[in-house]
Simulated scan of single mutants.
Amino acid sequence: MIVRIVEPGDQSAWAELYAGYRAFYRLPDDPVAVSTTWQWVRDGEHGLVGLVTVDDDNVPIALANVRWFARPSSATMGLYLDDLFTAPEARGSGAASALLKHAAELAGEGGGSVVRWITAADNATARSVYDTHAAATPWVTYDMKPTA
């Protein structure tokens, strides 16, 4: 499996994958969100790095978006995996594992202390892959709405 940083020519295939990611998590169809996120990963905005696993024709079949974050409790940096999605027809091919391994290598090269991500508790398929690469933590995630 080849993992690389996104290239401008990946836009169409990447957008299809990211729309699939959003649909999987029951987010509304939002071409603006897909387009904006593509711009961020393509240009490295907000510290995002867009990664893709590609097939033999160099077409993306899986994506991962990662970014560095500070870990004040340990005075280290971590690599956060915001999104990971594999095209349904490529599942079981090792594409997601290749992305996770690449993220671990990026973290190691950058002196990171952890690669961290969250997933839905009921996402058994993804969790079976994640469990082969990382340890689930006991932490509970909260989301708070900003005040207007």
Rank of each mutant, 00 (worst) to 15 (best):
Y130N: 02
A33H: 05
S113T: 02
H102S: 10
V66Q: 01
Y18Q: 06
T132P: 02
G9I: 09
K101T: 14
A107G: 15
D56Q: 10
H133S: 04
S113I: 00
T37S: 10
L84R: 00
F24K: 10
E89Y: 15
L48G: 09
P31W: 05
I2C: 08
G92W: 05
D55V: 02
W139P: 03
A121F: 06
S35E: 13
A33F: 08
D10C: 06
H133Q: 14
D122A: 15
K145D: 12
L100W: 01
T119Q: 02
P88N: 10
D29L: 11
M144N: 11
P31S: 00
V49N: 04
L27D: 13
P146M: 13
W139G: 12
T132I: 03
G92N: 06
D55E: 07
V49K: 05
D83H: 11
D57K: 15
A90V: 07
L84T: 02
V34D: 02
L106D: 00
R71K: 08
L106H: 04
W139L: 10
G108T: 05
Y80T: 02
Y80F: 15
A124C: 09
D143A: 12
G110S: 11
L100K: 00
A75I: 02
E109H: 12
A103K: 01
Y25C: 08
S35R: 11
G110I: 03
R4V: 04
V115F: 04
A62N: 01
S93G: 11
A135E: 12
V41F: 05
G110W: 05
R91K: 12
G111R: 02
F24Q: 12
A70F: 11
H102L: 02
S113E: 09
A62G: 06
Y130S: 00
M144L: 15
R127K: 10
D30I: 08
I5D: 14
G47N: 07
R67W: 11
S93C: 03
W38C: 06
Y142W: 13
Y25A: 12
S128H: 13
G94Q: 07
D82V: 06
D30G: 08
G78I: 04
T147W: 13
A70E: 12
F69E: 11
G111W: 04
E105P: 03
A75K: 14
A62P: 01
W117R: 07
S73M: 12
L84C: 10
A134W: 00
W40P: 00
K101D: 12
Y21C: 06
Y80S: 04
G94W: 04
I118F: 13
V6T: 10
L48S: 11
E16H: 09
S97V: 03
P146H: 15
T37N: 05
A19R: 12
P138K: 09
D43T: 10
T141G: 09
D56T: 09
A136F: 06
K145S: 09
W139I: 10
E89I: 09
M77H: 13
R91G: 07
T141V: 12
D29F: 11
I61G: 00
L106R: 08
K101S: 06
M144V: 11
D43W: 05
E89R: 15
F85R: 02
V41M: 11
V54L: 00
R116D: 13
E45M: 13
T76L: 14
R116P: 00
D122Q: 14
G108V: 02
T53E: 04
A107I: 03
P72K: 04
L100Y: 01
L48D: 06
R4K: 09
D82W: 09
L17P: 01
A104N: 11
E45H: 15
